[in-house]
């Protein structure tokens, strides 16, 4: 619980982060600190320097333009969960942000830090993959965008290069008629996802149109459930059709499922169709009444400084 020695720097702009990263090899970025600080205190990480990016205004805030939500990397989970823009245009993201950890975690943890850390049991990667998000990244040579599909590569591993900085997350606004849901099987202690299933579904003439289903928590990095999508696409959304399609998820899971003392890999494999079914059912319910977007989850306590 006592971190090893490290140097501390504070960056006031994105450009300065880059300069500091180049100057201090091995330095880590400190945003909300909710993943990094525990690693330091358990002495599982010992970076020579921390670069505090927490006060950079240009990395904060939520805006909507040109058919996409832009969420600054330093935006907290609580802000995302409470945002009316996110609730209107990416309701599954609002729902997922509202069930991360507990209020203290949500008030400090940031979306940029979350995705860059790429914990397999995290909620946001699963939802961002389902919603077709992409990440705005500042690099040594300028800016680039990395789609979520190529971003999360493996456990704690992303497509980010050594000096790359996630500056914002771009989420396409939900098309008219689409229903979204995030179903979480929560670990009672850590509140990480034992299984997280996200679904985004459109209805065309009473049949399932474009459907995206993703899973996290039980795989090293969030995945698309292509077999489920294929099985459901074009079907009338009956309970049986949903259950049958959800059962197909076993084809998408691969051999390397995560298991631990709380939930074994075998159990998670058995529960994946249940979570997918529940996510799809909830999403389809909303798809048929898309005008009524679910209200944003407001934090139970909002600090005065927010």
């Amino acid at each position: 619980m006592y971190a090893p020695d490290f140097a501390y720097y504070r960056a006031d702009s994105v450009a300065e982060i880059g300069r500091l990263l180049r100057k201090h090899p091995g330095a880590k970025l400190l945003a909300g600190g909710h993943s990094l600080i525990p690693l330091l205190k358990l002495r599982l990480a010992a970076p020579p320097a921390l670069i505090d990016i927490g006060r950079i205004g240009e990395l904060k805030g939520i805006s909507v333009a040109d058919g996409r939500l832009r969420i600054g990397a330093l935006t907290t989970h609580a802000q995302i969960a409470a945002s009316s823009e996110v609730a209107a245009h990416a309701p599954a993201l609002a729902a997922a942000a509202g069930v991360i950890g507990d209020p203290a975690v949500r008030n400090r943890g940031t979306i940029g830090g979350n995705v860059a850390h790429a914990d397999p049991a995290s909620d946001l990667p699963t939802v961002l993959l389902a919603l077709g998000a992409s990440f705005a990244v500042a690099t040594d040579d300028g800016e680039r965008a990395i789609p979520a599909g190529g971003f999360f590569q493996d456990m704690m591993t992303t497509a980010l290069g050594e000096h790359d900085i996630v500056t914002a997350v771009d989420v396409p606004t939900a098309p008219e008629g689409q229903g979204q849901a995030y179903e979480k099987f929560s670990h009672p202690a850590s509140r990480y996802a034992v299984i997280g299933a996200a679904a985004a579904v459109g209805l065309t003439g009473g049949k399932v149109g474009r459907v995206v289903v993703t899973l996290g928590g039980l795989v090293p990095a969030a995945i698309r459930a292509g077999s489920v999508e294929q099985a459901l696409s074009g079907q009338a959304p009956s309970a049986d059709a949903i259950a049958d399609a959800a059962a197909a998820v076993s084809n998408d899971l691969g051999p390397d499922l995560i298991g631990d003392i709380y939930a074994s890999a075998e159990y998670r494999r058995a529960m994946a169709p249940v979570c997918v079914k529940r996510a799809l059912t909830a999403a389809l319910k909303r798809a048929s009444s898309v005008a009524e977007a679910p209200a944003a989850r407001s934090p139970w306590w909002k600090p005065s400084w927010l």
Binding site: P188, A189, S190, D260, I261, Y262
Partner: peptide, 11 residues
Amino acid sequence: TGSMLDYALPR
């Protein structure tokens, strides 16, 4: 279950 991440206390 060496920490509160794994030891599930009532919430």
